[in-house]
């Protein structure tokens, strides 16, 4: 028998990034990473910037997703985020530059620490996700 599936939609204000039948996923909830399998109980959570992973058949997919929400139902997950990039869309050079900039900002005394850390996190998540493109 075929493995159970559910519908995953990743939507940003600009476009629909993913709309697929998948087997399994994890997403970066603001209270921590969570995983979803088909038949999950209804669940609404905020998301922070992080890595979203899903599996379709035997293939793994990775995305860097921005802050937003996830609505989880038994047969459907909708992820509403400000930004979402698939692993192969990520501009590695740009992310590296962003990380360098964030490092610099961290050293500045007059720069907001929270902002600098958030910038740092975003750059690092992007680089992490970009690395995984080869594995798929």
């Amino acid at each position: 028998m075929a493995e159970e599936i559910f519908q995953l939609d990743v939507v940003t204000p600009q476009r629909v990034v993913v709309s697929e039948q998948v087997n399994e996923m994890t997403a970066p909830g603001s209270e921590g990473e969570f995983g979803v399998l088909p038949g999950h109980t209804p669940f609404l959570t905020t998301l922070r910037f992080g890595e979203l992973w899903y599996r379709k058949g035997n293939v793994d997919y990775f995305l860097a997703v921005g802050p937003g929400f996830a609505e989880v139902g038994p047969d459907k997950v909708t992820v509403l985020v400000d930004t979402a990039e698939t692993a192969d869309e990520i501009d590695v050079n740009r992310a590296q530059r962003a990380r360098a900039r964030a490092e610099e900002n961290l050293r500045k005394t007059d720069y907001d620490l929270e902002t600098a850390l958030a910038e740092m996190r975003r750059a690092e998540v992007r680089l992490e996700v970009a690395k995984k493109v080869k594995k798929t």
Binding site: E31, L44, T45, T46, F69, E71, L80
Partner: peptide
Amino acid sequence: YQPDYIYEPGVKEVLDKLLPK
């Protein structure tokens, strides 16, 4: 028909983020 969600962190926090968006 959909039963109500489990909210994480909580209804208030979710609403705080959802409304400005």
